[in-house]
Design a binder for these strands. Sequence first.
DNA 1: CCATGTGAATACATTCACAGCA
DNA 2: TGCTGTGAATGTATTCACATGG
Lengths: 207, 207
Amino acid sequence: MSNPNHHVPAIVIGRLPLYLRALTQLSSEGRRVTSSQELSEKLGFSSAQIRKDLSYFGEFGKQGTGYEIEFLEKSLREILQVHHVWEMALVGAGDLGHALANYDGFEARGFRIAAIFDADPQKIGTLMGEWRVQPIEEMRQMLRAQHIHVAIIAVPAAAAQSVADELVEGGVRAILNYAPTTLSVPPRVKVYHIDPVAGLQSMTYYL
Amino acid sequence: MSNPNHHVPAIVIGRLPLYLRALTQLSSEGRRVTSSQELSEKLGFSSAQIRKDLSYFGEFGKQGTGYEIEFLEKSLREILQVHHVWEMALVGAGDLGHALANYDGFEARGFRIAAIFDADPQKIGTLMGEWRVQPIEEMRQMLRAQHIHVAIIAVPAAAAQSVADELVEGGVRAILNYAPTTLSVPPRVKVYHIDPVAGLQSMTYYL
DNA sequence: CCATGTGAATACATTCACAGCA
DNA sequence: TGCTGTGAATGTATTCACATGG
């Protein structure tokens, strides 16, 4: 199947960033060509799965040879739309917000923090990394003015839903949610939830 | 199926922490009883799925009534083995490590940081939250001495694999990995990987 | 000959729909 | 009656295995 106009399962989309990450690592090691077999070993998915996943989007490999790393990397970046950089709003200037503001891994992978917001008057106007913390009251209009469509929620659980509502009002369509609570948003808005404790709990089951 | 000695799919285990989180929220609101329907609305899974997931472990509800929240909460905590608190090692005293050290959401959900390690001589001996940063050279024996089986990796990608190797040597069997790289560990060791950028990339696909 | 790309087969997960019981 | 618990039915995902072509 090489018709890109076909429905691609969400679970496949979720693996593409991992393929991309592995390819970037390989190319940083100076490698030029790889195979579904090698990626399989690095990532822990079967080689057949990798080939099938890629086949949803076209034919990227050469039979008998494998995949040209740079080409596949570029293709995946375009598929995931991270060939250009997305400006993000970061909401929450606590410890987590601070760590995210200082994280240097965003830009190379397609994201950049454009503004930081918080509700606490004590924090507004202070510097966090290279940004000055903005009042959340101004968030909606700034999102609109700067055409920001991606945001990170790093506020306590109790505040997360109202922040999400504001983000949606401001035109945000992708939310990375660090608050340990389920958000309700319109269907056009995507939410990716990060809950480290849930991850830990699902491991202790096996201990 | 009410025989607990049956194989439970990993995907089911992964949802239990979310059920638990929702139940804790409900009970903190003073609620005593809930239903698969209500949990379904709060969490976005179908009610049939919630009932079937729970049925792997026994019968927790009353027909015609629903689930007694406190009882189901307690049962899930026991299934996930978070009815007692796990001591954790945190490796990496950077910004992320700092945020994790100050995070107050671990303890109520079954985890506590017991020690923080770093390789940077500048950081060793300094205070981070309530902990003094320990040299990574001493990590292995401290893990053994304190019977620590759970750890968090919050170091740069380049250092993550060697940290993981040390953790495994020290007897750790569950690793929460924040480094953007795949770890290779023996099969008895569980790894839960957190990659916020991968989450963002899987959302921008849809924008 | 080697590794891709892919239909077909298998395995797994979710939903349906209803019997059974408070 | 109302909601659980669960076999059966359906729907999805993964793996198999091989034709294809560099």
